[in-house]
Amino acid sequence: MSVILKVEHLAKSFGGVKAVTDVSFEVRAGELKALIGPNGAGKSTCFNMLMGQLKPSSGRVSLDGQDITGHSPRDVWRRGVGRTFQITGTYQSMTVAENVQMALISHHRKIYSFLPRAHRMYREEALALLALVGMADQANRACAILAYGDLKRLELAIALAHEPRLLLMDEPTAGMAPRERISLMQLTADIVAERGISVLFTEHDMDVVFAHSHHIMVLNRGELIADGTAAQVRANARVQEVYLGGGTLFSPEDAHG
């Protein structure tokens, strides 16, 4: 399998605080890869550096062999990377369908046209995407009144609008009921498998992670401590220490300054 996303020696510090130190990994075509770790491990920081919301202090991110380190979010998006956020950021003043249409308008580079009626543009494509995530019947509802789980589905539809090769999903199931989580993740897995999209996601729910990912990476205190299949990660001694105790979350040196 070819490498889609390659991350080399990525690091980020805020002032003197090292949020991420020397992280390297790859995401291959068609792969579902999870990035897990305790709170404050640096997952979101990592994500924001990949997508351009944060500029890395050092290191390199490349997409299909092209350097995209420090590129703006919209540039990374144009290169075929979709993103969903931990806290959804849909457009409250638009209908469900219009939210997807907006992404399609942007994808077709029609943002600066003043003459056509936007609510008629790419409507069929938008409805097809909504059908894919099971939201077709809500297409004309105002986005502001959607249930949270539906917002997450909508966000997935939006992220698929520009036919991405890679999806970055930050806590896709956060805040959802357990049953909803599994079904959303199953839906995502089906869609990406069918379309050959790679996915990198962070997640707190270990059921979701171990059920759906091909590979799992574990981040602890800004450092990647494991990268492998579910079985490999389960057997990894350092991961066990981090999650099951052994006091390594904060080492004695930290405690004494």
Binding site: M51, Q53, S72, P73, R74, W77, R78, R83, F85, G89, T90, Y91, Q92, S93, M94, M102, A103, S106, H107, I111, I158, A161, H162
Partner: peptide, 10 residues
């Protein structure tokens, strides 16, 4: 509505 979402969709 959401500058972040807008930037993240081009």
């Amino acid at each position: 509505d959401s500058a972040r979402q807008a930037e993240a969709t081009g």
